[in-house]
């Protein structure tokens, strides 16, 4: 399975995301923000970082990058997309996912190993987890507070679209402790913490993040079989 990882000016975690794809058994393909060609990939990861310096709003300028025009179009047709941190912000700015990410309520940048509860496990990106499974992966953001109006939050909860929720502490003021959400069909997932930093015991607090990438590789193998 070919999974594209987009590099925007200011992306930080594209290398780690590409490595996570390979550790999970997928083939990673580097995609460039200025090139609308997706090079035949089956899915896309929008990695963490500070695309375009986080100018204007996080993800607001990246949303209009040439590569994003193609990704938005293909994602609406069902191509799986995982947005991590800045990638989650870009997915919200592009209106592929509802809500927005705002400045942490305590104003500090936060970097910690974060415990999460996996809640939706039938998506392209989370099917390797058990519902209710608790995982620990790094979290690092300055603008990770998930907000949406009450009607949207109720719909996310009612339709079971919350993918992961913060446990122990709410690190950034996210409403209803939401760490990640999905679209109804489960092909598009946005997550504030960083699974790509927790795929090998040498460098991560756990290998709990690998499941996101294994899930996608497994989904594709299942679809082909």
């Amino acid at each position: 399975m070919k999974i594209g990882v987009v590099t925007f000016p200011g992306s930080l975690d594209d290398r780690d995301a590409a490595r996570a794809v390979r550790v999970a058994g997928g083939e990673s393909v580097a995609l460039w923000h200025g090139d609308p060609d997706l090079r035949g990939v089956d899915a896309v990861v929008l990695p963490g970082g500070f695309s375009y310096g986080d100018y204007l709003r996080c993800g607001a300028i990246a949303r209009f990058a040439p590569v994003m025009r193609t990704i938005v179009e293909r994602a609406q047709q069902g191509m799986p997309v995982l947005g991590i941190c800045n990638g989650f912000q870009i997915l919200c700015e592009a209106h592929l996912l509802p809500g927005a990410l705002t400045r942490n309520d305590h104003l500090h940048f936060v970097c910690r190993d974060q415990r999460l509860r996996m809640e939706r496990t039938d998506t392209t990106w989370t099917n390797a987890y058990a519902e209710g499974e608790e995982i620990v992966i790094p979290l690092k953001n300055g603008e990770g507070g998930y907000v949406a109006d009450d009607a949207t939050l109720d719909r996310l909860e009612g339709d079971g679209l919350v993918v992961a929720r913060y446990l122990d502490v709410n690190p950034n003021g996210s409403l209803r402790d939401i760490a990640g959400i999905s679209n109804p069909s489960g092909t598009i997932v946005g997550l504030m913490p960083h699974p790509e930093h927790a795929v090998e015991s040498l460098t991560g607090p756990s290998t709990d993040g690998l499941g996101f990438f294994v899930s996608a590789v497994r989904s594709f193998a299942g679809a082909k079989a």
Binding site: D105, H106, L107, V147
Partner: peptide
């Protein structure tokens, strides 16, 4: 401007 119902931590600071 942020909508009134959205928390503004910078304004609060």
């Amino acid at each position: 401007m942020l909508k009134p119902e959205i928390l503004d931590p910078q304004g609060r600071a």
